[in-house]
Simulated scan of single mutants.
Amino acid sequence: MRALHTSDWHIGRTFHGADLLAEQEAVLAHLADLVVDEAIDVVFVAGDVYDRAVPSAEAVRVATSALGRLREAGAELVLTAGNHDSAPRLGAFGRFAAAGGLHLRTTVDALAEPVLLNDRHGTIACYGIPYLEPEPARHALGVPDARGHTGVLTEAMRRVREDLANRPDGTRSVVLAHAFVTGGAGSDSERTIAVGGVEEVPGAVFDGVDYVALGHLHGPQVLAEHLRYSGSPLAYSFSEARQRKSVWLVEFDEKGLAGVERRELPVPRRLATLTGRLQNLLDTPEFSAFEDSYLSVTLTDRVRPVDAMRRLRERFAHAVHLDWQPEGGDTSAALRYAEAVRGRSDSEIAAAFLADCRGAEPNERERKLLQRALEMAAREDE
């Protein structure tokens, strides 16, 4: 049997305000092409199908289209819920969907009820563990003394192993789980799932199964041969700009896991960062290669440029983030109000504020305007 491991689609997410639905639809359509080209039997989606618990109508349309294409390409589908999903909404009509090859595992009650898939070697039991919020999950699992993510996932895996032990000898196993496993490296685009300051779960919690398809972290990672994150199909923060987004092609033989290969995904629009003075960025021909990229720009002009983002977008239409770090300026020191105003007159404080905001001292005319404004304010107070 050949499987595709993916996760963290986050359909409906925006990137610094930019709509990503078109890019998401294009990448997910490529997964259907992989199903055909690689003769994939089943696709595992390990949580965070949507970016919000209540997705927009357009996000639902994109998800429905993607799942439909994967099914039409010939693959069974096994999905579980992530911390961004609403598990009840995602799992609605699950029993009916299973008849069409879409198997939803979104409830605590069903985590030890595997999807049973068959090949010429026998049966593969696929268990879906949705994201388990520790406090409600420990009561739903009947383990009120369980602590944190490790406690509830330990109980979930105990149930999985118990069910697996009652299956015929030779039954192979897969677990889908949405969690932060120790050894994984996060990025800026994941929502924290820390409870009491602890969000990591030891990899040993998942011992005893042939393959663990993990979701939550957005970079593709190998924690052990059988324990992997596929990562998200698109970059959702500039910290992911250097990641090569991909999925795992997982193959099973009669003994269990036979091998795993990586398949890189297309990049609809790449991410890049630029640093320099505004006019230089606008005029230099070598920056033409970034005109179609999502850009994070750091300006180094000594004086903060006026209307910088609008001017940047005249050349770089997809500039989405702007910072200003003037050359020679000290932007690392924390400004403490009490220290900044001690021993200064109102006019001196106002002038210092203006200089701090734009990186240049006010000229004589501006100082007179500030002084006049302060005098008017004082008369109004009187």
Rank of each mutant, 00 (worst) to 15 (best):
H218G: 11
L28H: 01
Y127I: 14
M1H: 15
P202Y: 00
R138L: 00
L4Q: 14
A373V: 06
T273C: 09
G91C: 06
L335P: 02
G12L: 14
E199D: 11
A73W: 07
K368R: 15
S56G: 15
G186I: 00
S65D: 11
A350R: 00
R69W: 10
H321C: 03
D48T: 02
A351F: 05
T192H: 04
S237H: 10
D207Y: 09
R367H: 15
E380D: 13
L282K: 11
G68H: 07
G91F: 03
A112H: 14
V27F: 08
F252C: 05
E199G: 13
Y127A: 14
S7Y: 00
T298F: 04
T150V: 12
P362F: 02
D119H: 11
L227D: 03
H218I: 13
S230F: 04
L227M: 11
S56Y: 11
L265W: 03
A289Y: 05
G12Y: 13
A194F: 03
T182W: 03
A165Y: 01
A53G: 13
F353I: 13
A156K: 00
L265G: 04
R263F: 02
T107L: 06
G170M: 09
P362T: 07
R358L: 12
G259E: 12
F93M: 12
A378Y: 08
E23H: 10
A177Y: 00
F287Q: 02
A53H: 10
P362R: 01
R172T: 08
R161S: 03
E113N: 13
W9K: 07
G359D: 05
V35E: 00
L299M: 09
S246G: 13
L281R: 08
V160S: 08
K255D: 07
R372G: 14
G256N: 10
S239D: 00
G208A: 04
Y50A: 04
I11G: 00
D48M: 05
E133V: 00
G47T: 12
I124T: 14
T275V: 07
V195M: 02
V45Y: 03
R158A: 12
F287H: 12
T107P: 02
T171M: 10
Y229E: 13
V115G: 05
H218N: 06
A333D: 05
E366S: 12
R336A: 10
H178G: 07
R159P: 12
L299N: 00
V143A: 14
E72R: 15
A355C: 09
E254P: 01
G208L: 06
A92S: 05
H5A: 10
S56M: 11
G276T: 08
F180L: 11
